[in-house]
Design a binder for these strands. Structure first.
Lengths: 350, 350
DNA sequence: AATTAGCACTCGACAAACTAGAGTGCTAAC
DNA sequence: GTTAGCACTCTAGTTTGTCGAGTGCTAATT
């Protein structure tokens, strides 16, 4: 495959920069005028025809300027784009926005998502991963009231779930404590994927307590574990899409928003993004969901002790300010990792 | 003020029924044709002119049919509308949709909201109320790991919040239990609005435990209480608005969605609705938020032992299928109250 | 051989002009 | 009190024409 020579690259960059800021197809004259390449429009015209043939640009219709194709954006993001430095004001406001007392990891993610959407003017998504590999740290049962108890499950990733159970009123707090201790012995330090029916059966056999009390508690534990494993999706700044002309058409806006409404679709997209890089960029049809094939997605993940505990992404039109999004996301990622450590740092020890 | 005679009422009803189903301004001919009132279009024309003068109808422009005004809808909802009975299929599918094992009240609300939006094809909002009047049932501290403990607060309304605290590693589980017992003695059965700085100061004075441990735990309790009191807003079916022609205009859709995005605006609307009736209907400009002055809101609340623990609403264009919305909401309300009782029935005892 | 100027052509966006149709208000007849 | 008839109004949709930006090609220039 033919490579882009230096001049072609500069022209491509000029076109994409221009298109990102104006949203209008870019013509040869514009390139010649605005960017000082020392070339006439005719020359640029020829180069643009080449770039189109090579698949980096496309034409909405014959007598319009060119717009970047997915391939064009890909090249731009990988090779051409100048990384934008955040100004002091910007870092300051991001830093401030992340300074909130937060007690659970999910809340932190949610907050980060909100910050990103406001800062970038795009829509932001945050998801918690499947937690199959996370480890149970503690299980506790608390008497709340006559006939009621609370079951709490805590994992090494700082996720906490609880569930109320009705129990016979004759159960003494001590009994509950005994059950909790037994559950802790059996289950703590296990990954949740390993917790299954057979273990519960075993527990039910070994733990002989009069009155039907063990079963409902085990059910509650199961329920908590299911909830821990069940990924959550947070969304922010959905209406930001109305700021971008590509969604002026109502049916486009609807398509986009309908994807956001289906949380599991969103989840599967976020989940399928490979996370081999710090920041991942998925351009246009690189994602498989038809409805958002004109959108790009910039994502990153957070981890604690080698375990991914959440990922966050910004989604907007392919004509996205990649530079701004990527640099702010790097910053937020950093900040978020710090916060997570502050919060849970020493809980984890692998 | 002049009252509507029987014929005017029937004509008004015909017009509104028609407009609700077609979304097109209704002309005199249409009324004469579709609804068998035994009157000619000319007569109806005269009556319509009267109805307009009286404020029940309005004309988008001189040579169009009439559309109902807010006042017209109000009369329709209060007096004219035939209550729609849900079919067996419909009740069945609603009943099924509400059958999910759910452990916390908020989840239940969220589920109800989702069901309503799917069933009605409008957007649904659910909010938890301010919980100032709710009563602390239990506070517990759990050791999770060396240097970490979990603080859990439970209220009579079934709301549970927790917060992680870092504590010195030398604190023994027994000490934690002692602290918890002390907190329970002091705080349980108090309404959360009564819990303030001075009580915490008192506790800090009386509860002498070496090592800085009491303070962080109290902070965590404060944090949990703040969270309990902090209302939450759930949203579902936002894209449903695209099904309705009044939002075909992108700026209208944006206005609507921007209100949904501002959770606190939504909250304040839902909160301000008087709940003196089973089902409340707020039509058009009856709500004070400019952006949704062309929308109506149908709401209801759920309570447990006299305390409101959540409210849910459906929001859509003023041209709403009030009948369907109201009847399904009645059903969901019923169902939800049952579920809440099943879940928390005997926790509460006033 | 690469670059540029020049020119005919294409196409979409926009505005002006026109048409069809639905609905009204009014008057006069029933 | 009700209805038929008619002139009038206004919107939505279509047609037509114009403008301008941009292209591709060819021939001249460096």
């Amino acid at each position: 495959m033919m490579l882009l020579d230096d001049r072609k690259q500069r022209i491509l960059q000029a076109i994409i920069d221009d298109y990102i800021s104006t949203a209008e197809p870019v013509g040869s004259r514009t390139v010649a005028r605005k960017h000082e390449l020392g070339l006439s429009s005719a020359t640029i015209r020829n180069e643009m025809a080449d770039l189109e043939e090579m698949g980096y640009l496309s034409q909405p219709h014959t007598s319009a300027g060119r717009i970047p194709s997915d391939k064009g954006y890909r090249f731009y993001v990988d090779k051409l784009m100048k990384v934008r430095e955040l100004s002091a004001d910007e870092t300051e406001s991001l830093r401030k926005a992340m300074e909130v007392r937060i007690s659970e990891v999910n809340q932190l993610l949610k907050q980060a998502s909100s910050v990103m959407s406001r800062f970038t003017n795009y829509t932001s998504v945050a998801v918690t991963p499947q937690m199959k590999k996370s480890v149970i740290k503690a299980i506790q049962t608390l008497p709340i009231d006559t006939g009621k108890a609370l079951v709490v499950v805590v994992t090494n990733a700082g996720v906490i779930r609880n569930s109320i159970v009705k129990i016979s009123e004759s159960i003494l707090p001590d009994t509950l404590t005994r059950i909790a201790n037994f559950l802790n012995d059996k289950l703590s330090n296990m990954t949740i994927e390993k917790v299954d029916k057979s273990i519960f059966n075993e527990i039910e056999r070994e733990l002989v307590i009069p009155g039907k009390v063990v079963k409902p508690i085990l059910d509650a534990v199961t329920h908590c574990i299911k909830q821990i494993d069940c990924p959550e999706v947070y969304l922010d700044g959905a209406i930001n899409i109305f700021n971008h002309p590509e969604f002026r058409d109502i049916s486009k806006a609807k398509e986009f928003l309908s994807v956001l409404d289906e949380k599991y679709v969103l989840y599967s997209i976020m989940d399928s993004v490979s996370n081999d890089r710090l920041i991942n960029v998925l351009i246009g049809a690189e994602n498989k969901v038809e409805e958002i094939k004109d959108c790009s997605l910039v994502t990153t993940t957070y981890s604690l002790g080698g375990m991914t505990i959440g990922s966050i992404g910004v989604i907007g039109p392919t004509r996205m300010e990649y530079s701004k999004v990527i640099s702010s996301m790097k910053f937020i990622r950093e900040k978020l990792n710090q916060e997570i450590n502050k919060l849970l740092g020493d809980v984890d020890e692998d």
